[in-house]
């Protein structure tokens, strides 16, 4: 199997997609949004318990490809107990590492580290939206928008 494929479907991605963390709605859910990728039909709902500026808990459910599910699963871990600004910064960083060969300027170098396996999508530009969909959905939830699409 070629190296790009191995980098894309590395163990961490397969593990998260097969056994997604934080599936379902957290108890104290205050915000939610549905995300949809019309291109491939990925469909997820992101739930968050937001307390002031802090994201107390995050969860999700839905159907999607391995990249979308892994990204959603990793996201729920990365943003639990982070503040809203971190979510925004992380999405920026994620876009960088998913599109650029040498992404130097990362906003949140520490928090981005566990998300690095997602950067394998760099070699597959048409799949970047699969990775960013959960994050955009989370942002929509916080903004009270209810829906996000990749279009």
């Amino acid at each position: 199997m070629d190296d790009d494929l191995k980098a894309l479907y590395q163990t961490a991605i397969l593990d998260h997609s097969r056994q997604p963390r934080n599936q379902g709605k957290p108890e104290g859910c205050t915000h939610r949004a549905r995300g949809y990728n019309p291109l491939c039909g990925d469909q997820i709902t992101v739930y968050m318990e937001v307390d002031g500026d802090r994201i107390a808990a995050a969860g999700f459910e839905g159907k999607g490809c391995a990249l979308c599910l892994a990204s959603a699963s990793m996201m729920t871990e990365a943003i639990a107990s982070a503040n809203k600004a971190t979510l925004v910064n992380l999405l920026d960083d994620l876009k960088l590492i998913c599109t650029q060969e040498q992404a130097e300027t990362v906003n949140a170098p520490e928090e981005i580290a566990p998300l690095l396996p997602l950067s394998g999508v760099r070699a597959y530009p048409v799949r970047v939206k699969c990775v960013t969909l959960p994050w955009q959905t989370a942002l929509a939830a916080i903004a009270g928008e209810g829906e996000a699409t990749t279009e």
């Binding site: 790009d4 097969r18 039909g41 490809c65």
Partner: peptide
């Protein structure tokens, strides 16, 4: 089973096989 069509499409493409995935 257990594999989304998009992942199938990406992987077989790398093997030179062009199929359509989606709705």
């Amino acid at each position: 089973d257990e594999v989304h069509a998009h992942d199938i499409g990406t992987i077989v493409d790398r093997m030179g096989v062009a199929v359509r995935v989606g709705h």
